[in-house]
Design a protein around this nucleic acid. Structure first.
Lengths: 230, 230
DNA sequence: CGATTGCTTGATACCTCTCAACCCAGGTGG
DNA sequence: CCACCTGGGTTGAGAGGTATCAAGCAATCG
């Protein structure tokens, strides 16, 4: 999915972590300091949350649903950069404006945080600055993996990677419940909706997955799916 | 080209810059503090500088030549993430190990810096932490643009974008002198070497560029080239 | 119900890859 | 001096993967 700022909170503190990966940080903590008022916002599917180039005065955390961040070409072609699920933070910028657009991939509730609070805190707080750096580097690592996928993988490899990625969040580790459309999957993988559909059907025919409904996918052969990548 | 940590040094300080984009930072400054010994290293073309997964105890700045950072699939397919030219910093990590491999794209001299120094400084110095954050976010923005290119652009659009990108560094703004092979260009754009070659020939036939030699490219119609993107 | 949305499937086109030959410049050594 | 080799680049013919265009299906919703 996306880079998760808050994910670190749930993980044990790494024993010999690098200096630059220190205490986890969460907007919640900032809430307590009273600096970052969090407004709860709801967006219907496909509603724009913000647009590339807008002044980046706010960042967001997903409360429920899925948000997507993406870029567009002038003729409408779209590349989705990441999906953001519950707990994920998105819209954090270093510059003055958003470098991506953000939209609700399905009905979606988010908390918004005023950036000024973070900026001000980070100005004094080296720890917070380090958190932001770690967050950015984590996003960067994801973006680099994504580039490898987009530039060098075939359709099957892309879809397999996508499924495995989403399955990691499921309790069983082999069930994927998609809250997003085929179009979103396609625009994330750099494919068309038809190719995504065909590839899923193909994988089902091979008995590598089972589609109980279009949005409910069971990974029946994790080893084989992993084999598509490396 | 790549994200440049030091590029900011040469640019006027933005008047109303966001809080998170403060004073430029350069390894040189750190040198003066005596914390980051800079060793000068030379790499012949295609020599490995470091490998994905290696312990990231060092980062680098290009003195001359071009370095590339990239990822590989198990069967050898390669995706180049970025090229780094004189002045560019690469190999900065938040985690314990490198997320990419780095190699000399041509004969290449780099300065190496011990990471410990930076880590230690950043621990106390909020300003340095902010610099690192800004650096990471700039890299992230480049990676996102790259993903759009890889996922959604055609071969001509990719090549045109590549040429325009490199021409920005040339004094005239319309001459590109490549120090890298067609294979590197291809692996950066997610194409094959033949497609890159054919596309360049195609652009030359259209009189949009002139190839005085394979490595010496003149952009004859910037407007038309820009038109390929948007 | 009819309309809409999301998804699947088929036929065909086309873009890029693959495989192969060839060119050119530079270096090496007989 | 030239034959030879090598690395980098170009070009061609054909194959193949994905896109495009189009039709149809199922579920949902007014």
């Amino acid at each position: 999915m996306s880079t998760r700022l808050s994910a670190a909170i749930h993980e044990p503190f790494p024993p010999a972590a690098a200096l630059l990966m220190l205490t986890p940080w969460s907007p919640h903590q900032a809430d307590h300091a009273g600096r970052l008022a969090g407004a709860l916002l709801h967006f219907d599917q496909d509603r724009e949350i913000y647009c590339e180039g807008d002044e980046a005065g706010t960042f967001f955390k997903v409360v429920s649903g899925v948000a997507r961040t993406c870029k567009f070409l002038s003729d409408g072609r779209r590349q989705i950069d990441a999906f953001h699920v519950t707990g994920d933070v998105f819209g954090v910028e270093a510059g003055p404006s958003y470098s991506l657009s953000a939209e609700a991939a399905c009905d979606c509730t988010v908390t918004s945080y005023r950036r000024r609070g973070i900026d001000a805190s980070a100005f004094h707080d080296a720890g917070l600055s380090r958190q932001l750096f770690a967050y950015a580097m984590q996003s960067l690592a994801r973006a680099q993996d994504h580039a490898l996928l987009l530039g060098r993988k075939s359709a099957v490899e892309k879809v397999a990677a996508f499924l495995l990625d989403w399955a990691k969040n499921s309790p069983s580790g082999q069930d994927v419940t998609l809250a997003i459309t085929r179009q979103d999957v396609a625009d994330y993988l750099g494919l068309t909706i038809e190719t995504v559909s065909r590839t899923l059907s193909h994988l089902e025919r091979q008995a590598l997955i089972a589609l109980s409904s279009p949005r409910q996918i069971r990974l029946r052969d994790l080893a084989a799916l992993r084999g598509f990548n490396a």
